[in-house]
Design a protein around this nucleic acid. Structure first.
Length: 281
DNA sequence: ATGACTAAATACTTTAGA
């Protein structure tokens, strides 16, 4: 979000456009009471239950759900603070899936105190996910580009955080609990970024990084029918510097995630689409 | 030239982001 307060009109417009069942927000930069005062009514009116873990100035995460919001846990058990606990994780069970909305620490400079904090935080996260149920989604601003294909120019990031071997190893250990990077799996060779620096026209030149990830366990990954980065949401006036990542899940055999919607009756017969769809860029 | 842009607290500047 880079401030939910600054992004409120865009957020509400995006919710109305996409109508997601579950939404994970990061970098809300708002204390919980201020979040509720600002957005409580707007979200309730759209059918969302809300779980919040915010603070006054920085960080802040949220989970919105139309399909249930049970067993809410804030923070990551066993994770360090910097030095105090920071509002970087909220988890809940929504429609039968354990969902984690995460804002992984930045790391700032390799080998700095903040970098050590980032790695320790990720290790604690791995342990929590490892002990979690079979159906999980681990998502948010992971602040790691999984491979060099996930940055516009690997040479530009040498010596920077987000691409170092220990960070990528920490991500690999998280994935080794049984998670799939479902957006990369869907677009194995495409240039796809989720973050572009505000400066120097980086977005307009498509010079970015893919650091916002949607990681799903096996039974959830099997239900992914679409997965993409909503680059359009980064355009226009007053955007965040990140774009939303979206996945569309098929309804589970037990009906998890939303009501089963009957197919529309179409007495005149289905019409074939003949116009070419625009590219998502 | 560690610049550029955006946001926050508290404040007219510093810290943070990545």
């Amino acid at each position: 979000m880079n401030s939910v307060k600054q992004r409120m009109p865009r957020l509400l417009g995006w919710l109305d456009e996409r109508e997601p069942d579950v939404v994970c927000l990061q970098e809300t930069k708002l204390a919980d009471d201020a979040f509720t005062a600002l957005l409580g009514q707007e979200l309730a009116g759209r059918g969302y239950e809300v779980a919040l873990y915010g603070e006054v100035q920085w960080n802040g995460v949220a989970l919105l759900s139309k399909v249930g919001l049970e067993d809410v846990v804030t923070g990551v058990a066993g994770a360090p603070g910097f030095p105090n606990p920071e509002a970087r994780a909220v988890a809940a069970t929504c429609g039968g899936i354990r969902i984690h909305s995460l804002y992984v620490p930045n790391g700032r400079v390799p080998d700095s105190d903040h970098y050590v904090y980032k790695l320790a935080w990720l290790k604690a996260l791995r342990d929590v996910v490892s002990a979690g149920p079979a159906e999980q989604i681990v998502c948010g601003d992971m602040n790691i580009a999984p491979t060099d294909a996930d940055v516009f120019d690997p040479a530009a990031y040498v010596g920077s955080t987000h691409v170092t071997a220990p960070e990528r190893e920490a991500l690999a250990e998280l994935l080794a609990t049984g998670l799939h990077d479902v957006v990369r799996d869907r677009w194995p060779t495409e240039r796809i970024f989720s973050y572009w620096d505000y400066r120097a026209g980086m977005f307009h030149q498509d010079l970015g990084m893919r650091i916002d990830l949607m990681l799903a366990s096996d039974p959830v990954a099997e239900r992914v029918k679409a997965a993409w980065i909503d680059r359009k949401a980064r355009k226009g006036t007053g955007p965040s510097d990140h774009a939303p990542v979206i996945i569309d899940l098929d309804v589970a055999p037990d009906g998890d995630i939303g009501p089963v919607v009957p197919p529309p009756s179409n007495p005149r017969g289905a019409r074939k689409r003949t116009t070419k769809l625009p590219q998502n860029r």
